[in-house]
Amino acid sequence: MADTPVLDVQDLKTHFFTRTGVVKAVDGVSFTLMPGETLGIVGESGSGKSMTALSLMGLVPQPAGRIVGGKILFQGEDLVQKTQSEMQAIRGREICMILQDPMTSLNPVFTVGNQVVETVRQVKEASRFSLKDRAIELLQKVKIASPEDRMSNYPHQMSGGMRQRVVGSIAIAGSPKVLIADEATTSLDATIQYQYLALLKELQADTGMSIIFITHDFGIVAKMCDRVAVMYAGRMAEIADVRDLFNHPAHPYTEALMRSVPNVDEEVEYLYSIEGQPPALDNLPPGCTFAPRCPYVFDRCNEAFPDLIQVGDGHSATCWKLAGK
């Protein structure tokens, strides 16, 4: 079982067709996700992390956005070919997602109980009477104190951390095989964030689900993930085991990202930052998208986008520097 990936994304391309041109938000992303594995996707804002996630959910913003190429094989079935109603049956039950902002993920005009119960009703064939019990059980799972009383609360009566727990309980209601956490803890303060991450780990151990962790925080990656994919300008820069990536970053972008994480023991006058700006996604350079900012750039980099080059066991990166010479 551990040999077949639960999710196999191949050369995924999600483009936006706007008045000013085609924005290539996701442009050839490939990765696999094993059962029970935690994959981190890191990258700066606008690198296509969230669009990759929305593509997996079948929720690319309409009508401008469209998946124009590639495959998303979920347990062998290609999700790109599914209709909206088929995808709706998959959302919640097979793949679910925790959004970035707990303050706004819950509907302000319905009680927490209402929102958990409606999800349970949607994703499980449960009898009418057990819906409420199941909802309370879910709230217990995410460690909400006295869940019976909390059912009648409105979101604005809860703290941010508690709301994000409720969101978590909704996300696991259908026992999904893949859970995508899109910057799920970014807006929480450090202590609450730590608790929430621990909770997710616990739920994962419980259910055996795979988690895709979208973040720009390397600390979270180190703590949570088995493998990491680094994205830059809609493409995969590097993918590796978490230790490998931290110890031997192969792609110049990853290397630069690592250097920009401040170190507590070091005293510096200025924090390191990568020169320049990420390219506009509607006007990408012909070669490597990182070439204009790369310290190692040479002729070939401006000619074609690099292939994914294997540098170790399960470790590959898209950089011509690795092709030898």
Binding site: M57, L59, Q84, S85, Q88, A89, I90, R91, G92, R93, C96, M97, L99, Q100, D101, T104, S105, L106, N107, P108, E118, T119, Q122, V123, V167, I170, A171, A173, G174
Partner: peptide, 13 residues
């Protein structure tokens, strides 16, 4: 976000 989340959790349109 809450409308997005309603879709994410599998509710019909």
């Amino acid at each position: 976000e809450y409308v997005k989340f309603a879709r994410v959790k599998g509710l019909p349109e």
